[in-house]
Design a protein around this nucleic acid. Structure first.
Length: 210
DNA sequence: ATCCCGAGGG
DNA sequence: CCCTCTGGAT
């Protein structure tokens, strides 16, 4: 089956889910960057469960830059990979404080040089933090894009290239959120709900066996 | 290619 | 029990 027009697919997703807002909870650029690094390979609710106490204890980059890593580990432990994440956000806070004048870089190259920030996280920060068009490819986006038929690859960079060529730039940010929502609620990894899917007539995967 | 790492769901 | 969750660094 030929991949459907992206406009139709996104319109259907909006009709089904509404226009989703980011599930990650944050109230500043500082909080966004830290929450995004913590969100690697864990659910947003796991991150949202620890960030209030983390941000109460360390309200900005400067305070986190001076944090005791063991204390940070204790606070964020339940998000998994806590040793790496504690080290990364502390070093990241130091880097931004000392080498970036306390402000978050606004371009992908510099963002990706921050510890714990790869291309996916950099794209999320650009999109959500600066409203700069970017299509972050996480596990949900990768799965949904492959099932729809927009690509056939496990390489997130290639998935991103397909999505950014198929979908109009003005829809990259809402498209990202819509793909995430669709992946969570309907196009689930394990038991996708194809019969009740809003785009099953436009999807290359619907009706196929796992 | 492998490691880091915990929690929730089916 | 096994799979999955908005990955990144070595």
């Amino acid at each position: 089956m030929m991949p459907a027009q992206s406009e139709s697919i996104l319109e259907r997703m909006i009709a089904r889910y509404g226009m989703p807002s980011p599930a990650l909870e944050y109230h500043s650029l500082y909080q966004l960057v830290v929450a995004v690094v913590l969100s690697a390979q864990t659910t947003d609710s796991q991150v949202n469960a620890v960030t209030p106490s983390l941000f109460r204890r360390f309200p900005d980059f400067q305070s986190l830059a001076g944090a005791d890593i063991a204390e940070v580990e204790t606070i964020i432990k339940s998000t998994g990979f806590y040793r790496n994440k504690a080290k990364n956000i502390t070093l990241l806070a130091r880097d931004i404080t000392h080498n970036h004048g306390g402000t978050v870089p606004e371009n992908r190259e510099e963002l990706m040089r921050l510890p714990g920030v790869g291309r996916k996280s950099a794209n999320v920060i650009l999109a959500m933090g600066f409203n700069i068009p970017a299509f972050a490819v996480d596990t949900h986006v990768l799965r949904v894009a492959n099932r729809i038929g927009y690509c056939a690859t496990d390489d997130p960079l290639k998935v991103e290239a397909s999505l950014t060529s198929i979908i109009p730039e003005t829809m990259w940010i809402p498209g990202h959120l819509l793909f995430i929502t669709h992946g969570r609620r309907t196009c689930r990894a394990r038991n996708p709900l194809c019969p009740e899917c809003a785009i099953n007539d436009l999807c290359a995967f619907a009706g196929k066996t796992l």
